[in-house]
């Protein structure tokens, strides 16, 4: 009876983790019940092999080395996009003229996968950290910019009028009403920007780098070291999930007054 109560109370976590565990177990067991043809066997790996490879790479410092390089590109690019995107978004939100002038570029760039600019950026910055930072910036700046100015635009007119009626200056209106109102939007933009930034690091390192986790994945793939490929993929997955969910938690805390929308990453 107690077991049943425990199950009903925690049903969602039990089923969720259970599913993943079963999936991993099935994957691990494939070589046991299915004899892979010689060609396929080269590409097949199992969770235990991936874990072993991960441990090994950790020991010989490979992961640390590559992680460090990727992290720098990520942080620099993201930082740059915040420094550029946030103020620009604030100004665009308050100035309809500026918004209209920049709108075609913003809409076009937002709809276009920024990855398309990578060959151009490599041409300009060469293979190395700068083309990576550039592509991370290009990906991350738009969600931040757009969400910031949507947040500023969506401020409730009534609230602005209330504060104005107490004799507040434009700057005070910004500080008291507009900024707090925009914070949830900005955080949501940050969440999207992080996803895009990681994407930028991955793709940037596939093509425009000789170091970093993305490079590790690409070169391992060429050498058929599928377990190492998965180590890289899993690390990116873990980072993505941790970062995105931390920001989501922050979002819910700061924005409990906003209506729920569909998942967007």
């Amino acid at each position: 009876m107690k077991l049943k109560n425990f199950y009903t109370e925690h049903e969602s976590s039990i089923l969720g983790t259970g599913f993943i565990v079963v999936l991993l177990a099935l994957w691990e067991s494939v070589p046991l019940w299915y004899a892979l043809p010689k060609g396929m066997a080269l590409f097949f790996t199992t969770p235990s092999k991936i874990a072993a490879a991960f441990y090994q790479l950790l020991l010989n410092g490979e992961i640390e080395k590559h992680f460090y390089v990727s992290a720098i590109a990520f942080l620099a690019g993201l930082g740059l996009s915040i420094v550029v995107g946030l103020p620009l978004g604030l100004i665009m939100g308050r100035s309809a003229t500026l918004e209209d002038l920049l709108d075609p570029y913003v809409t076009a760039s937002n709809a276009t996968p920024r990855i398309i600019f990578l060959p151009l950026l490599i041409l300009w910055f060469g293979i190395g950290i700068w083309s990576k930072i550039a592509i991370v910036f290009a990906g991350a700046v738009f969600p931040l910019l757009i969400n910031t100015y949507v947040g500023v635009k969506n401020v409730n007119r009534v609230l602005v009028n209330v504060v104005r009626s107490f004799g507040a200056s434009e700057w005070q209106v910004m500080k008291i009403v507009v900024l707090p109102n925009s914070v949830p939007y900005i955080i949501a933009g940050l969440r999207l920007a992080i996803g895009r930034a990681i994407l930028g690091v991955v793709v940037g390192e596939f093509f425009g780098s000789s170091q970093g986790l993305g490079y590790m994945i690409a070169s391992a793939a060429t050498n058929y070291k599928v377990d190492v490929v998965f180590v890289g993929v899993v690390i990116f997955m873990a980072l993505s999930v941790i970062l995105t969910f931390s920001v989501k938690a922050l979002e819910s805390r700061l924005a409990s007054w906003r209506p729920e929308t569909a998942k967007t990453f």
């Binding site: 993943i20 994407l199 998942k263």
Partner: peptide
């Protein structure tokens, strides 16, 4: 059953699997 697994995948840069 599916939510945690699929959410984790959605949040990840699946492009990383491209070389594979």
């Amino acid at each position: 059953s599916l939510d945690p697994f699929l959410t984790a995948l959605y949040a990840s840069p699946l492009v990383a699997l491209a070389p594979l």
